[in-house]
């Protein structure tokens, strides 16, 4: 038993939706690889599509995803893992709705250090970088004790994933019943709308920086004259300036147009994740340091509303 308890490993908690292994799990596994210890993957029992050659052990939990991705169940599951396999050096979750929810609750329950939205690891100093102010600066964090809990930003470490010769062994952890305090009922799909922005070749996307709802008609006019489809960032939907079906990002749509013209969008990662694969990204922002310029192919530093008026005028004149 004693060498079980001194085992050194990285525990990766998988995220599974409607049975499918989410692609962002590759980023948690990739960071696990960088950390050097064997990677153990914790999986709910209804998961499919898992490539067991990219981890060193699979631990199947007797709980379906609705129960597994529940912070109250997760702390019981982790307790059992610690008892039977010893404490890992790191516990990695995706930085997503359920990943961050379980990570925080586990940190509080076990009194463990937690760093969220990790997008970089510096091996020489053993520090993890985390975004502040929507990627305007990053902080390098050191954890004072182990195990540490980290949530990992999607897209950050997937190229670190390596494949073993053989597929990993699968062990099972036993069954976990639903919790009293919180129970999963069902999934609800947001209602679709009339416009499908994922089909457009040319998206004109507006952000909070346009200023107010009163500006929207002029952007609709611009979209019409340029034959673009209007899309937007989340705050524009939250403020009811445009309907939800127009939202690009992790909690909206993932788009891949030929041209994505972003006007007054700062470039938070939840937005970038939804449009970074566009063939050509053009960003217009009055802040030359706006993070979106790091992802754009072309950039313009300007006041969007003024430039918009000129664009409409020019398009109409030609």
């Amino acid at each position: 038993m004693s060498d079980v308890l001194s085992a050194s490993y990285v525990l990766v908690v998988a995220e599974v939706r409607r049975g499918l292994f989410e692609e962002r799990n590759l980023d948690t596994i990739g960071l696990g690889r960088l950390l050097g210890s064997p990677v153990y993957l914790l999986l709910p029992d209804n998961a499919s599509g898992v490539d067991a050659s990219i981890v060193d052990k699979v631990i199947r939990v007797g709980a379906d995803e609705g129960n597994f991705q529940n912070p109250l169940t997760m702390v019981s599951i982790l307790t059992k893992v610690f008892e039977t396999r010893g404490q890992p050096d790191f516990i990695l979750f995706t930085h997503s709705s359920s990943g961050a929810e379980c990570a925080a609750y586990a940190a509080g329950h076990f009194s463990l250090p937690v760093i969220t939205d990790v997008s970089g690891f510096d091996r020489p100093t053993g520090t993890f970088s985390k975004s502040y102010y929507s990627d305007k600066v990053f902080a390098q964090f050191k954890s004072a004790s182990s195990p540490s809990i980290l949530t990992v930003r999607s897209g950050s470490f997937r190229d670190q994933v390596t494949r073993n010769q053989a597929t990993a062994d699968t062990e099972s952890l036993g069954a976990f019943t639903a919790q009293e305090g919180r129970t999963f009922l069902d999934y609800v799909e947001e209602a679709g709308g009339a416009v499908d922005i994922t089909k457009a070749d040319f998206l004109l996307s507006v952000g909070r920086g346009i200023g107010s709802k009163d500006e929207i008609p002029r952007y609709e006019e611009l979209a019409q004259t340029m034959k673009a489809v209007l899309s937007c960032s989340r705050p524009v939907v939250d403020k009811l300036w445009l309907p939800k079906e127009r939202q690009v990002g992790t909690s909206g749509k993932t788009v891949k147009p030929k041209v994505y013209l972003a006007m007054a969008i700062s470039g938070a990662f939840q937005h970038i994740a939804g449009m970074k694969d566009a063939d050509c990204i053009i960003a217009i922002n009055k802040d030359p340091e706006a993070p979106i310029f790091q992802y754009a192919h072309f950039g313009i530093v300007a006041d969007v509303n003024k430039l918009r008026d000129k664009l409409i005028e020019t398009a109409k004149a030609s």
């Binding site: 305007k136 902080a139 790091q294």
Partner: peptide, 21 residues
């Protein structure tokens, strides 16, 4: 006592960046 601490602040890693018009 803090369980985690910031050792350093850094600017974002520079990617290729946009060609500015």
């Amino acid at each position: 006592k803090s369980l985690v601490e910031i050792t350093k602040w850094v600017y974002p890693p520079k990617k290729e960046g946009a060609a500015m018009l």
